[in-house]
Nucleic acid binder design. Structure first.
Lengths: 341, 341
DNA sequence: GGTAAAAATTAGATCGATCTAAAAGATCGC
DNA sequence: GCGATCTTTTAGATCGATCTAATTTTTACC
């Protein structure tokens, strides 16, 4: 079999010539313009098929203001929470004929800045971004300087403005506290206290407010690290103290599962001796033993909302900024079953 | 504050004029060519900074054969295994100044074909693809037709050829069987038997071969579904049968964790009454209770290898195809501890 | 049949870079 | 001082589409 020679690509002009029309007409056909008479359209489409034409969107982008391309900059792709979110973004993009660049800042503002610059050079229409820990206003300044429309997800930079989508962490935690109180728990601790970014602060604040609401002491907080581990020494100190906790609300499901494992190693019977509540409702929460009660933050829905919001922003750059806070509902499972059950 | 007028973008010609050189010279400077005399380079760089020039890679792509863009088409982004893989791809891309489109086929060959077409239109240099269940040779034909270099990861289409990266499932399972035998298990079942794609077949084959090697019966196979659930009825039938299994090797960690939960509900003490081994070594395997013994398939490394291989292919399109099979090692944890411990 | 209005098509400029091939400038030996 | 060589810079064509403004064709109506 002979190798085909230089397979030089077919362009619109070739198609136009084959169909006996002008380049402009062929262009209108590929874009599905209603201006073209049906018979002509047919002829052009036929020529396209014959020649194996492939639309060169890159060339089109040079003339148009939109590229049908967005960037998704996440602080840690490897986190399952973010993969659900990514899937949500992809759902909306697929429906809108948009493709999505993905970039992983790994919680490094420098890498994040580099990625944004790169995305800008590739002419993305806008970005969805979960700011890396340590991001500050220079992030938004960079975006402004690059005139890059953006939607922040989950976290926002301090004092930042602009479109934003997140879950209602505080009210989710309030529901969790109420549930614990209703099932007879009084000594509730929070595992994974941090103030590294807005989402962490929101959770901790939510905990303090909810505890105050129920007039319970809110001083049992175990520090978290990296969003997936907590201070084990501090936890053990509380567990072995004179007034140990009888339940815990965790920063996220990852920590909650680690905590469950920790407690089980120490002989606790979960749901009975001790109630554990996580956050996010990752698939693994339902599959754990015992199944984990958790505050569902709906990452997929957040992704969908962010992608939709970004498209709205692109269509109407001057619309007022929008901050979407999606409800966070409590999913009750065995890890927090009432003691009397 | 007055809104700035039409912020019309600065292009290379503007930069060139400001620096008192030609467009061609400015172009050589942005590309870091050594042809330019240092003082001239300085002048141009200074002008770029002054004017806030942003390189338009999209325009450059029109003339060049490479766009520094690749596509990553996954069968299910939401799967944590794939997010690790994505992170690995991103590591290599970040180092190579390449950006990556992500697309989720959700195991639908149709959606997959659509996504590939879209990526092609955006002129990606190549794709890394984990073929959706049901993909056949038409996938490779499509890629060929679009003259799109590709690397398959984890799975390959039947009879397919071309670059490929995966883990050594069979030898991983062999190690798992040997470990179980050495710790006194004889009645080993496989949970998650499927033949929907090459990776599933490879695991099942590996199980049968390993069992034959140890002259053990290999007839206990529980069917899997979707890569994350198994046939619970069939499992219970085996557990309650006359010759119940004493251990299980699972298709992946997700199923293994579900199985652990299942067995714990039924009163088994894991690691003692029953040994469970998973596959992949997701972070959650180590965090489970008891910690899960698993066959580490190193998704991040697979992603890195695939991205590296794709770059090699792009640099030398005629190099012989390569099939990289990364080792899969057994990570022993408490879920398969010896009975006598 | 003639003309106005509507529909369909098109020529040519344009987006912002790269590439080729050649020109201009600097350096050197003798 | 002069050609040869090396270094540095550049003009102009080009990639493959879209866009504007105009032209051509068709339809409608009296």
């Amino acid at each position: 079999m002979k190798k085909s020679p230089a397979p030089q690509p077919v362009n619109l002009l070739d198609v136009a010539r084959a169909a006996g029309v002008s380049r402009a007409t062929a262009s209108l056909v590929v874009r599905g313009s209603p201006l073209i008479a049906p018979p002509t359209r047919e002829r052009v489409l036929e020529a396209m098929k014959q020649l194996g034409y492939i639309y060169n969107r890159g060339a089109a982008n040079l003339r148009q203001s939109r590229t049908h391309t967005i960037g998704l900059v996440l602080s840690n792709i490897a986190n399952p929470f973010f993969s659900e979110l990514t899937a949500g973004v992809d759902d909306v993009n697929d429906a809108n004929d948009v493709v999505c660049f993905i970039a992983n800042s790994v919680e490094s503002p420098e890498r994040q800045a580099r990625q944004i610059q790169r995305l800008r050079e590739h002419n993305v229409d806008g970005v969805i971004i979960c700011p890396a820990i340590g991001s500050n206003d220079t992030l938004l300044e960079d975006l402004q300087r690059l005139s890059l429309p953006y939607v922040q997800v989950l976290r926002h930079v301090p004092y930042g403005s602009g479109d934003y989508v997140a879950a209602d962490y505080a009210s989710g935690i309030e529901k969790a506290v109420r549930h614990l109180v209703e099932t007879g728990r009084q000594k509730i601790m929070f595992v994974g206290g941090m103030s590294v970014h807005s989402a962490a602060v929101a959770r901790l604040d939510g905990f303090h407010r909810a505890m105050a609401l129920h007039q319970l002491p809110d001083d049992m907080v175990v520090a978290g690290k990296w969003g997936n581990t907590y201070d084990e020494v501090e936890l053990d100190r509380l567990l072995l103290g004179s007034n140990p906790p009888d339940s815990a609300i965790c920063y996220n499901d990852i920590m909650a599962l680690a905590l469950m494992s920790h407690l089980q190693r120490r002989g606790y019977t979960l749901g009975d001796d001790f109630a554990v509540i996580g956050m996010d409702d990752l698939p693994q929460a339902a599959a754990a033993y015992p199944p984990l009660t958790t505050i569902a933050t709906n990452p997929r829905m957040i992704g969908q909302a962010a992608a939709t919001l970004l498209q709205k922003r692109l269509e109407a750059p001057d619309r007022p900024t929008e901050r979407i806070i999606l409800p966070a509902n409590l999913v009750i499972r065995a890890s927090s079953e009432t003691r009397t059950s």
